[in-house]
Design a protein around this nucleic acid. Structure first.
Length: 580
DNA sequence: GTGTAGGGCGCG
DNA sequence: AAAGCGCGCCCTACAC
């Protein structure tokens, strides 16, 4: 039994949690929590937070949809004296996270539709945008608003009551850790951020100077249409794509690039702008009190279970290298007295794939210390020499591209691109075709896994296809259908996507790797090691400077009980800044 | 004005 | 028949 708590707070087009982050939103002078709805265990209240007897929640299990928002509001209202300081609730669960775990959408309206079959329209909340409680009163809609808030609290309560038994305790703990890691945030090197902003403004100024249509105020500098018009004025055809990996665009650049620097200026502008926006977000979200920036990760952000970045700042996709002389990762630093130990699980996905295929040869080689991609080259590419990475870096790169690309069904056309992007390898389509065929012939166990999953999937036509993962949780595909090709929904009620053996294999591997890493996170927490943030298979730990870094790798590579015989390895680096 | 789709590109 | 996968955020274009 739990009590649902749902706050309604003022927001507008230029004042919102999603743009500003929760800390700045709450500390802004415009902040106003004008309503709270509380529902469950015989409590039914809706009104101003100051009018609720918060002591009624003492000792209760609380639940909110997006608990990282409501619990933060609760803490803030306690700090400023609206809520008394002695309300001791037991846990504060999140039904948005629960919904994701169950394969339902995160947003309350859609989650309630899928999990409760209930229509929870958000129209009134949108209507409140930019309006204060007094505006609602003036327009005679306050009782409607109260009902709306209570209805949301009831939906949250019902989602919890009907489904929480299917959410394991260790997964709830992962969700809780995700919330508190994000609240705590990361320390920011504010000087480096400022310098980066100055440098990028200059880069963009110079790029704009090269773009003839960039004069006015509201001009779309990256507009393909405007580029097209400019090209036709000059009597040349515009490239149909500006992507870095477009051969057509590469040819255009070779032919026209020196005379017309437009494409290269647009690319520079695009990259520098994306970087600049990230720096500005960091600057605006850094708390002056402790020079730290809160961030948010979405627990179960992907259907395979991985976390995903969120809320206007994605901490999981910071560039690895410096760009335009700006090192974004280095803007994130340990707190005083601490260092980072950055630890990642080495080649976790191919190891899992080998384990799932029961490829004993490969597993034994890895256990014996042979590098994974070298072992692959020995087994299936005829490598007979010594250390492959040292003796033949080109072949090593190809082996890596084969393992990471071809293991999941990549075809020849795509493999040309994958080999180029991943290993800088130029392959003709003919060579790619031969490589794909040879790979599938010499990796029969992988192909057998594709085929087995594909057949199992098709047997689920008309219903839900579930793959039981070694950890005990399930990977689900809803409403399997064969109409117009085989499709399913990876999210309940979501868009249909094409499903096939290679994709199922990749999803399965990704899900198992996620569970391995998740167990590691729980063990780190048990050992009292702070994780500043994490990126799929990498934990950025923030520890006192005298901490032994090898302990962290040891903890992350303990085999879960459900993964016996899969050799795990980790690499750790100590650093005074975040880096790759 | 808002919402959405898609190109492009950052990450694992 | 064949198909790398999983994300989020920037921007533009376009429908309403």
């Amino acid at each position: 039994m739990a009590v649902a708590v749902d706050f309604e707070t003022f927001y507008s087009s230029d004042y919102s949690v999603s743009d500003m982050g929760i800390w700045r939103y709450v500390t802004d002078t415009r902040f106003d929590a004008y309503l709270v709805a509380v529902f469950g265990e015989g409590i039914e209240f809706v009104g101003h937070p100051k009018d609720f007897d918060w002591r009624r929640l003492h000792g209760k299990e609380l639940v909110s949809h997006n608990a990282s928002f409501d619990a933060f509001i609760f803490v803030h209202l306690t700090r400023i004296g609206v809520i008394p300081p002695d309300v001791g609730f037991r846990h504060w669960h999140c039904t948005a996270n629960l919904s994701c775990y169950l394969g339902a959408p995160r947003a309350l309206a859609h989650a309630a539709a899928q999990l409760l079959g209930m229509d929870v329209s958000k129209d009134l909340r949108k209507w409140m945008r930019g309006k204060q409680w007094a505006d609602a009163v003036a327009e005679g809609r306050e009782s409607e608003l109260r009902q709306y808030a209570l209805r949301d609290a009831r939906a949250c309560h019902d989602i919890w009551e009907r489904n929480h038994a299917r959410w394991p305790l260790h997964e709830r703990e992962l969700a809780r850790l995700t919330m508190v890691f994000g609240w705590k945030g990361v320390r920011i090197d504010t000087k480096r951020v400022e310098e980066g902003i100055v440098a990028l403004n200059r880069v963009m100024f110079e790029a704009v100077a090269q773009i003839p249509w960039a004069g006015g105020d509201d001009v779309a500098i990256l507009s393909p249409k405007l580029l097209g018009e400019e090209c036709r004025k000059a009597g040349i055809e515009p490239p149909s794509s500006l992507a870095e990996d477009s051969p057509e665009c590469e040819e255009w650049e070779n032919r026209h690039g020196s005379q017309y620097p437009w494409v290269s200026a647009m690319r520079t502008y695009r990259k520098a702008n994306a970087l600049l926006e990230k720096l500005k977000t960091m600057r605006s979200r850094t708390r002056p009190t402790d020079r730290c920036m809160g961030y948010e990760l979405k627990y179960f952000g992907s259907h395979t279970g991985r976390w995903s970045g969120s809320s206007g700042f994605n901490i999981q996709n910071l560039p690895r290298e410096e760009m335009f002389g700006v090192d974004l990762r280095a803007c994130i630093v340990p707190r005083p007295g601490c260092k980072f130990v950055i630890c990642d699980l080495s080649q976790i996905e191919p190891r899992i794939l080998a384990w799932l295929c029961d490829d004993a040869t490969l597993l034994d080689q890895i256990s014996a210390g042979i590098p994974l991609y070298e072992a692959h080259a020995r087994n299936t590419m005829g490598w007979k020499g010594g250390n492959l990475k040292k003796e033949n870096p080109g072949l090593y790169a190809l082996a890596k591209a084969r393992v990471l690309g071809l293991g999941y069904g990549c075809g020849p056309d795509k493999f040309v691109v994958v080999a180029k992007n991943m290993g800088g390898i130029d392959l003709s389509l003919q060579e790619a075709k031969a490589t794909v065929t040879a790979f599938r012939q010499s990796n029969r166990k992988i192909v057998a896994l594709w085929n087995r999953l594909d057949a199992d999937f098709k047997r689920s036509n008309g219903s839900t296809f579930e793959i039981e993962l070694p950890s005990g949780r399930a990977l689900s595909y809803f409403n399997v259908s064969s109409t117009g090709g085989w499709t399913a929904q990876t999210e309940r009620g979501g868009r249909r996507v094409r499903i096939y053996g290679g994709k199922l294999t990749e999803n399965l591997v990704q899900a198992v790797a996620r569970d391995v890493f998740a167990e590691g996170l729980l063990r780190l927490a048990d050992a009292g090691i702070d994780v500043a943030f994490h990126i799929h298979d990498e934990a950025v730990c923030e520890v006192p400077v005298d901490t032994d870094p090898s302990e962290i790798g040891r903890i992350l590579t303990i085999n879960p009980d459900w993964l016996p015989g899969c050799p795990l390895a980790a690499e750790s680096v100590e650093s005074g800044v975040y880096k790759k």
